[in-house]
């Protein structure tokens, strides 16, 4: 007998699986999958201004920094300012989807591609953001490679204020509506990577970025 049949066989026997209870169980499964009911969610003010404020506050509590600009065309200059203030290199890797922004005008050298080990700065957008916990939701694709938010020591993310949603449940609903199927990797990111493995003392910068900076576009 294959391991699969052995394991499933014992689970079935222990659950006294028969034709009748199987039919009822299948109905329960279909109901669970189609209803997609959710548990209690925190009460979050859904007005755009309140969502933006909460998202920013919760992000900062995760040691993320944030800046707000009026429109997308202001983004390169805002990133250049941040890199100058932090004494970071002016060269970066960015999602190919962002390659069209006028980076050179802001004095930045930006390559649109997947990240390599030595890239100091990675610039991404995000699929949406979550106000409940100050979290970014990134979806992988050819135009939005996952390495850009992972390998560089500095991760800068561009967030459109209109894409800030209250909870993770809202993010899934938006993904189903806009993407249909899930991409290979959905990464929820909440601040710089960290570890507490030595004496349960939290330090920033474990394997991923040391710092995460947001440029929020007010749109």
């Amino acid at each position: 007998m294959s391991s699969r049949e052995d394991i499933l066989g014992r689970v079935r026997a222990n659950l006294h699986r028969g034709a009748t209870n199987a039919a009822a169980a299948r109905e329960d499964i279909l109901a669970a999958l189609s209803n997609r009911s959710h548990g209690p969610k925190p009460a979050i003010d859904g007005s755009p201004q309140a969502l933006l404020e909460r998202f920013r506050l919760k992000s900062e509590q995760q040691s993320t920094t944030a800046d707000i600009v009026a429109g997308e065309s202001d983004v390169p200059a805002a990133i250049a300012r941040y890199l100058t203030t932090m004494s970071l290199p002016k060269s970066a890797v960015a999602w190919p989807s962002l390659a069209a922004l006028d980076w050179a005008a802001a004095g930045l050298k930006v390559d649109g591609r997947g990240a390599r080990d030595a890239d100091p700065v990675g610039i991404t957008g995000c699929f949406c953001a979550i106000a409940e916990t100050g979290t970014l939701m990134l979806c992988s694709s050819a135009d939005t490679p996952a390495t850009v938010s992972l390998l560089p020591e500095t991760h800068i993310a561009i967030v459109n204020a209109s894409r800030i949603l209250p909870c993770m449940e809202d993010a899934w609903a938006l993904a189903r509506k806009e993407l249909g199927v899930l991409p290979r990797a959905v990464n929820f990111i909440s601040g710089p990577s960290r570890t507490g493995d030595i004496e349960q003392t939290v330090v920033l910068g474990a394997h991923g970025p040391y710092r995460v900076h947001l440029v929020i576009v007010a749109d």
């Binding site: 995760q62 979290t135 990797a185 959905v186 990464n187 929820f188 990111i189 909440s190 990577s193």
Partner: peptide, 8 residues
Amino acid sequence: SNYVSVLT
């Protein structure tokens, strides 16, 4: 947590 990844 910092990273919650859903891989498909």
